[in-house]
Design a protein around this nucleic acid. Structure first.
Lengths: 165, 165
DNA sequence: CCGTATCCACAACGATACTG
DNA sequence: CAGTATCGTTGTGGATACGG
């Protein structure tokens, strides 16, 4: 049983410039790198769409909710749209875009990790399951041949199409 | 095509107390909720083990690297151990624990999301592939019957074993 | 190589009050 | 319901210098 890290090909090591400037993780963290942003995404997956509900359920002030939602709309994770039910005044709602929905593996991954490693007894307070078949849901790292991929089996190689300058 | 959110069962809505105090995502974010912590985890998956390398490659000061690594060791994501190669002085290394390795789906998920939605042309500067079969690697949300699970198909229900108080 | 110590700047957030 | 405005506090991190 080796404890060796991922297999590195090429000369990725010692390239701090690339890591700081071009790494997609770094870029992603500029958009959803705050606590409140992540928790707002969680709320959206739970079905929340209204301003007050975001603030109340996430447990943040209206000022923070307003700032974060504005940023997330600008970044394209939400669409803000006014809507009107017949006979009622106009309201606003925040709807997830595809870009926002695509973040689901990250947020559910945090959920699973927290439930396993931090919650008492490694047990989640809620369960995630699949509507159509009822079985439990997990976030997994897989290759396109459907093998589970562990850290030791992960190869990180320079992209052929867009080389690191 | 419905734009409805995830199916909510039970009475999870309006329970801000639960969300603030017991949500595993919130707990997880207290441990790895900072930019530098996430980037240090990325570095570890890339194979970095030494203090100076973490600081240099993540692009943070030694002070920040020291603080973050200390917290991550305390939280159990790394083990710090001195080691000695024959004839050399003692060095320290930071090794991922199982808890640290288990965060890989989250970090790779951020990587994929950033590459798809933020990097120019939706193209990552590096590729992730499976060492044993060579095919590309992805982070996916799956149920135990191996179906892909979209947001619309996700059921969030109160855990039977440990009910929300 | 592996850190500590100090100082400073800014971002994130909570509390509170107020508006259409 | 959907925000804006202001203030104070803490957290995060950069710069620099120093020590085992």
């Amino acid at each position: 049983m080796t404890n060796d890290a991922a297999i590195l090909t090429g000369t990725l090591a010692n390239r701090s410039a690339w890591r700081a400037n071009r790494c997609p993780i770094d870029k992603a963290l500029h958009v959803i790198g705050t606590r409140s942003a992540m928790l707002i995404m969680r709320e959206a997956y739970y079905g929340t769409t209204r301003f007050d509900d975001f603030a109340d359920r996430v447990g943040i002030t209206e000022a923070v909710a307003a700032a974060r939602l504005r940023e997330l709309v600008e970044a394209g994770l939400f669409e803000r749209r006014p809507y009107q039910q017949p006979g009622q005044r106009t309201r606003s709602e925040y709807r997830l875009t595809e870009k926002g929905r695509d973040l689901m593996p990250v947020v559910l991954g945090l959920f699973e990790w927290g439930a396993k490693h931090i919650s008492p007894g490694g047990r989640a307070p809620v369960d995630l399951s699949h509507a159509t078949c009822g079985s439990p849901v997990h976030v997994v790292v897989r290759c396109e041949e459907e093998h589970d991929v562990s850290l030791e089996e992960l190869v990180i190689s320079r992209s052929a199409a867009q080389p690191v300058r």
